[in-house]
């Protein structure tokens, strides 16, 4: 065994670029593996766990009710900006605004509602989840759970996962409706587009609704998994909590963009 404790090696500050690249690649692979593992364990405990009653409802309130005002305000303004900008651009080519509402509805249902809503939720809900779980890690509450045969995934991740799955879809649907309404008002006030002309769902088909709902559901699953993964990996006091929170927002946002790409591509390939 040699000497009980080795003499500390000097800290290597400058790695060769290839070594650094290799390290980053290995870290990325192990990170993805850890995320997949957490997701599978979450699914397992969703059906087999013994978490406390009411935990999911509490998280649903936190994710849904508490996020709704922030998300509603954001989506309302985004709705106004988008309709205004689209109409301005359209007016330069053909001064006919009759299809602005129809195109906006399709874009909102398929892409903007879920993705902007998902990104907003990732910042608010993701940061909260990561900070909460990371605090529990650094204050040894997670160790205390494990010592009482309570799996942290069952107790901390599953309630957030289930609540997020439901409430993300609900909040995104409601806030997309609000974005449509503020868009309609903007079209009326700024471009004299009557409401009965603007409200036109002729371009929204089953494929748009299915794609939008699938995205919302996928974001609802990705946000708690990414955030809790960062939170549970935290170490080192309040600085560790801060790092976990930042990492959770970055990872959740990145996951939303990547998932968006794959769902959009899949929908295109299957003709939706």
């Amino acid at each position: 065994m040699g000497s009980p404790l080795e003499t500390p090696q000097p800290l290597v500050l400058h790695e060769r670029p290839l070594v650094k690249l290799g390290r980053v690649a290995l870290d990325a692979v192990s990170g993805v593996r850890a995320l997949v593992s957490l997701f599978l364990r979450t699914l397992w405990f969703t059906f087999r766990g013994s978490r406390p009653k009411g935990a999911t409802a509490l998280q649903a309130f936190e994710i849904g009710n508490r996020s709704a005002p922030f998300l509603a305000l954001t989506m309302a303004f985004i709705g106004m900006i988008l309709v205004y900008q689209s109409a301005v651009q359209l007016g330069r080519i053909v001064p006919d605004y009759s299809m602005v509402g129809a195109n906006y509805a399709e874009l909102l249902v398929r892409e903007l509602g879920p993705t902007i809503g998902g990104l907003m939720l990732a910042t608010r809900v993701g940061a909260g989840m990561a900070a909460e779980t990371a605090s529990m890690v650094v204050t040894e509450q997670v160790d205390a759970l494990r010592l009482c045969a309570a799996d942290p995934v069952d107790f901390l991740v599953v309630p957030r996962f289930l609540a997020s799955l439901v409430m993300t879809v609900v909040v995104i649907v409601l806030c997309s409706g609000l974005a449509y309404a503020t868009g309609a008002l903007t079209a009326l006030v700024a471009f004299d587009v009557r409401l009965d002309v603007f409200v036109n769902l002729s371009l929204v088909d089953f494929g748009d609704v299915a794609t939008g709902l699938t995205k919302s559901l996928a974001y609802g699953a990705a946000i708690p998994i990414c955030s809790c993964h960062c939170g549970l990996a935290a170490e080192g006091g309040s600085a560790g909590v801060g790092r976990a929170t930042t990492a959770a927002v970055v990872l959740s946002s990145l996951a939303i963009i990547v998932i968006n790409f794959f769902i959009s591509a899949s929908a295109f390939l299957v003709g939706l």
Binding site: M136, Q141, D143, A144, L147, C148
Partner: peptide, 26 residues
Amino acid sequence: RRRIGMAFQNNALFDDLTVADNIAFP
């Protein structure tokens, strides 16, 4: 672990549980 009791350095009390529920948890 049913035969082990541990008090942690940071107390590790669950923030969202009352004192009674914390004590009763194990």
